[in-house]
């Protein structure tokens, strides 16, 4: 477990005028499922492209299994499974042809590594003669994952594999990743969905080209360190407006059908707040204390 699979030191990437990555360092031990969590434009894709040797870092260095991404890019390319953010298979080839093609490109055959992809491929096998371009979003991702896995790489780098995929397929996809992890494959995955963070061994929360925090999801939520309440009423919009007016309330973020709030002195009497809101013409008010999740932590970190 102590062997390092990926190590990045002070990575920076500057495109003409934009600083996409502003000094990022992390280390991922072998066999870990590591998540890069952050909104669009946070620099996730740039980091992944540096790791996959597709672009050069402006500054800093990165190694994959001890191979430098700049100097030893050929070695890295032999042993890496990469799934770009955009569906990047041949749309005019069938499912089976795509898989066979990538198997051959990596100098292997589908039979040879069938065990590895079996769980995944079996789900798309009924459509093996369908053109890849005609698959649904979820099936496309499963095919892409199969293709990235076909040569049995030691590390998988998946750039937002679940973006634009329905909830059921997302869940299935993560189950597959966890099974792959159990087979000893190091997996680095990025996602804009905070709820997926809990499925990773460790996550890096990234915002605006900087990593705000790297830790186990559990530790991150434990470190929230404040009480968090969820509240809702009939008029959510007005509720947000009103809550933001109150002096003693610190943060107000809408969160699904609830609003998550914290108070400045970390204590709040639920009943008096409800009373206060009732005086402001709110009805059907529900309020309870909740455990912070990754998204709450992300927001919290972003503000600091």
């Amino acid at each position: 477990m102590n062997e390092i699979a990926v190590e990045a030191k002070g990575l920076k990437k500057t495109y003409e005028k934009v600083d996409a990555v502003k000094g990022v360092s992390f280390a991922i031990p072998k066999g870990e499922l590591f998540g890069l969590i952050g909104p669009d434009g946070a620099g996730k894709t740039s980091i992944f492209r540096i790791l996959t040797t597709l672009i050069l870092p402006t500054e800093g260095k990165a190694e994959i299994f001890g191979n430098d991404v700049v100097k030893d890019y050929k070695k890295i390319r032999n042993n890496i499974g990469y799934m770009p953010q955009r569906f990047s298979l041949y749309q005019d080839l069938s499912v089976e042809e795509n898989l066979n093609f990538f198997a051959r490109v990596f100098g292997t055959s589908v039979q040879e590594n069938y065990d590895l992809i079996k769980d995944i491929y079996i789900q798309i096998e009924p459509f093996k003669n369908r053109l890849a371009g005609k698959l649904s979003g979820g099936m496309k991702q499963k095919l892409a994952l199969s293709c990235a896995l076909i040569h049995s790489p030691d590390i998988l780098i998946l750039d937002e594999p679940t973006t634009g995929v329905d909830a059921v397929s997302r869940k299935e996809f993560w189950e597959m990743l966890i099974r792959l992890k159990q087979k000893g494959i190091t997996i680095v995955v990025s996602t804009p969905y905070m709820d997926e963070a809990n499925l990773c061994d460790r996550v890096a929360l990234i915002q605006d080209g900087r990593i705000m925090k790297i830790d186990k999801p559990q530790n991150i939520t434990n470190e929230f360190g404040r009480k968090l309440w969820a509240i809702k009423s009939e008029n959510i919009y007005k509720l947000i407006q009103d809550l933001r007016q109150f002096e003693f309330i610190d943060t107000v973020y809408p969160f699904g059908e609830f609003i998550h709030i914290t108070s400045k002195d970390n204590s709040m009497d639920i009943n008096s707040l409800i009373l206060l809101l009732k005086n402001n013409n709110h009805s059907k008010i529900e309020m309870l204390e909740v455990q912070p999740n990754i998204e709450d932590c992300f927001m919290e970190l972003m503000n600091n």
């Binding site: 996959t52 040797t53 390319r77 770009p84 990047s88 490109v105 990596f106 293709c147």
Partner: peptide, 8 residues
């Protein structure tokens, strides 16, 4: 992108 990140 995928072809480049391959031994080809």
């Amino acid at each position: 992108e995928v072809l480049l990140v391959s031994p080809l």
